[in-house]
Design a protein around this nucleic acid. Structure first.
Length: 646
DNA sequence: CTCCCCCGAC
């Protein structure tokens, strides 16, 4: 038998090795048997472990807490801390208030710092102000730790002035407080103010420089980020990752790739964060070949043992059109599958039109005991809406609320509107919008307008367009959608009137572009661009293809395109050709037979192009994979994987 | 510093 002190140390050490609730409960049992659970120090460690170190054990720590006689301040603080990091951070107020009411105990600086963190995470300004005043009365507001948290809290709650004031009133801010002020300014969208703080900092460590990089990148100020990057006296892995991720998130994939290559060239080497960043760039750009190279590299370097890298790979393969590889990565993961892994594969299957399989995986996930989050349900609802699974979608929407207690966000309501709208239940979709408890944003109305354009409902489209005109009058896409509704109905006068309004207000239409990779070179075709050598060749091939489609398949262009030709007849013939048709034509001209044509497009594929692709796949015997704005179309032998529902 | 996230725009 071990001595008492040794037993104590041994239990605490064992506890720190427990990664889940089950093994932690075994330690707890042992503690009860040996009587150690009554020791406030050991019990406090157990509580901390359940509340903070392992996930999904917060409820267990709450019940432990309630069964402990006279819990001390540390135990209260542990509970506050655990709750502040949970899905319901505002609940951290409860143990804090309880602690304040006790006559035998009182809150300390930790209590304030943790509860302020909870308030910051809940973005609720009012309790934040009350806590600030309490901290002031008890003299904790001058505590550097509390003061720093106050700055972050005000910034998170959107009160930039108060954040600024707390910082200005600090007598001797340390570097952590300076960094908090810097991050706070960025958080409030005050890019200039952040630069100002940075300029006045007495000491700058690497963290401050990296915070500047991250802040500029998040604000889309990539030029400024780049300048700071080259001005830095010292760069670490974080600096490099921040640049790669910053460029990737702002759609500058070439730069993201460039920084990654430079990172390798300079011998610093990739870590798991820079790898997820560069993989995310591949995913968004549809860079399948580069993604495969990275996969080989990271496998050899042992990065497959990192969960996030697997997740990024799953997403990359899905978004590059190879859902089979995505599945394989998911199945062979040598580490535990997190909620992100499950959500990634569900989203991947969904965007490839495998709605039933996505649902199947969701059920497997539930059986495994992984708890879905709000994003999982967005992906699942997306799967249902894009596969026409209306009843199933509604079922999951209810389950999300009633079984998992997840309050639907505007995105979930958006999915539901899409679900009904795509399935031609336009009035149901409209009713749903009117009855939902949050006020609809432009995206919600635009979803319904999109549905009206698919199903040709002029009355509803006009009503919805009027709403959009109030909320987002400068959006050219909405005008285009309404004009499409008119065009399908043959109401040319109304179409012309919209076009006139658009040119009078000099509204710019987003140009459509399509990319195809041939021999490691990416060719990008933009609708309406000036002809060059490449586009000329593509046009020639396209003319030949279209002729063959007319002769052999009786193809006739759809109304919208006819209209288009009339309107733009004085322009170059090239303008009337959609970029995805050009990319396909170029691919047929250049790629060897039997190769899959992989195309990435920035907008949604139009009805006419969809028909043309189906015919090309049949007549030319090629497989075409098109990644549209939000999903994949796989054309083979005259059919598309979306079953014409998209 | 990260991975998964509703709509639409030729």
């Amino acid at each position: 038998m071990l001595g008492e002190g040794m037993e104590e140390g041994w239990v605490v050490c064992l506890l720190s090795k427990c990664r889940n609730l089950k093994s932690t409960k075994q330690i707890h049992c042992h503690m009860v048997k040996t009587g150690l659970h009554a020791d406030p120090f050991v019990f406090g460690k157990l509580l901390l472990h359940c509340a903070v170190s392992i996930s999904d054990a917060l409820h267990y720590s709450l019940s432990l807490f309630h069964h402990f006689p006279n819990p001390d301040t540390f135990m209260h603080n542990t509970l506050i801390r655990g709750l502040s990091l949970s899905q319901t951070p505002l609940f951290s107020l409860h143990p804090f208030i309880q602690l304040r009411r006790l006559s035998t105990l009182s809150p300390d600086s930790f209590s304030f710092a943790f509860v302020l963190k909870g308030v910051a995470n809940s973005r609720q300004l009012r309790p934040g102000i009350q806590l600030h005043s309490q901290a002031f009365h008890l003299g904790f507001d001058t505590h550097i730790f509390v003061g720093t948290t106050l700055i972050s809290m005000y910034a998170e709650c959107g009160d930039s002035l108060s954040a600024r004031r707390v910082f200005d009133e600090m007598s001797q801010p340390n570097v952590v407080a300076w960094n908090a002020a810097l991050t706070a300014a960025f958080r409030c969208g005050d890019v200039e103010g952040a630069g100002d703080v940075f300029g006045r900092m007495p000491v700058r460590n690497l963290t401050s420089w990296n915070a500047m990089l991250a802040g500029y990148a998040k604000a889309g100020e990539l030029g400024l980020a780049r300048r700071v990057f080259y001005d830095m006296p010292l760069r670490d892995e974080v600096s490099w990752s921040t640049m790669i991720i910053g460029f990737a998130q702002n759609g500058c994939f070439d730069e993201a790739f460039g920084f990654f290559r430079q990172l390798l060239r300079e011998g610093i080497g990739a870590n798991e964060v820079s790898l997820t960043g560069v993989l995310s760039a591949c995913a968004q750009a549809g860079a399948f070949e580069f993604g495969k190279i990275l996969h080989g590299f990271l496998e050899k370097a042992g990065f497959l043992y990192v969960g996030s890298v697997n997740n990024a790979l799953i997403d990359t393969y899905s978004k590059c059109g190879n859902v089979a590889m995505a599945r394989l990565v998911f199945q062979n993961m040598p580490v535990a599958r997190s909620i992100v892994s499950w959500t990634s594969i569900i989203a991947g299957l969904a965007m490839h039109g495998y709605g039933e399989e996505a649902i199947q995986l969701f059920h497997e996930m539930e059986e495994t005991g992984v708890r879905p989050d709000g994003i999982t349900f967005i992906s699942l609802l997306y799967a249902c809406s894009h596969s026409g699974l209306v009843e199933e979608g509604y079922g999951f929407f209810s389950k999300m609320k009633n079984v998992y207690g997840i309050e639907p966000a505007i995105e979930h309501y958006g999915c539901m509107v899409d679900l009904y709208g795509r399935a031609a239940r336009l009035h149901k979709a409209y009713e749903f919008i009117c009855e939902m408890p949050v006020s609809p944003n432009a995206i919600i109305w635009r979803t319904l307008l999109g549905a009206c354009s698919i199903h040709g409902n002029i009355e509803l489209a006009e009503l919805v367009k009027a709403r959009l005109a109030e909320m987002d009058p400068d959006n050219s896409g909405d005008h285009v959608l309404l004009s499409n509704v008119y065009a399908v109905a043959g109401k040319w006068k109304d179409v012309a009137s919209i076009r006139r309004t658009m040119s009078e207000h000099s509204m710019k239409k987003t140009p459509g572009w399509s990319m195809i990779e041939i021999d490691k070179v990416i060719y990008c075709f933009v609708a309406g661009e000036k002809p060059n050598e490449v586009t000329k060749e593509a046009h020639e091939k396209l003319r030949e293809i279209m002729l063959r489609l007319r002769v052999e398949a009786g193809y006739a262009p759809q109304l919208r395109i006819v209209l288009h030709d009339i309107e733009e007849e004085e322009k170059e013939d090239s303008v009337s050709k959609h970029s995805e048709k050009l990319a396909v034509a170029f691919g047929i001209a250049k790629l060897p037979k039997g190769r899959i044509l992989r195309i990435v497009k920035n907008l949604r594929v139009c009805g006419d192009c969809h028909t043309v692709m189906k015919l090309i796949s049949k007549i030319y015997g090629v497989e075409i994979v098109v990644r549209d704005r939000s999903r994949f179309h796989s054309f083979r032998d005259g059919f598309c994987s979306c079953r014409d529902y998209w």
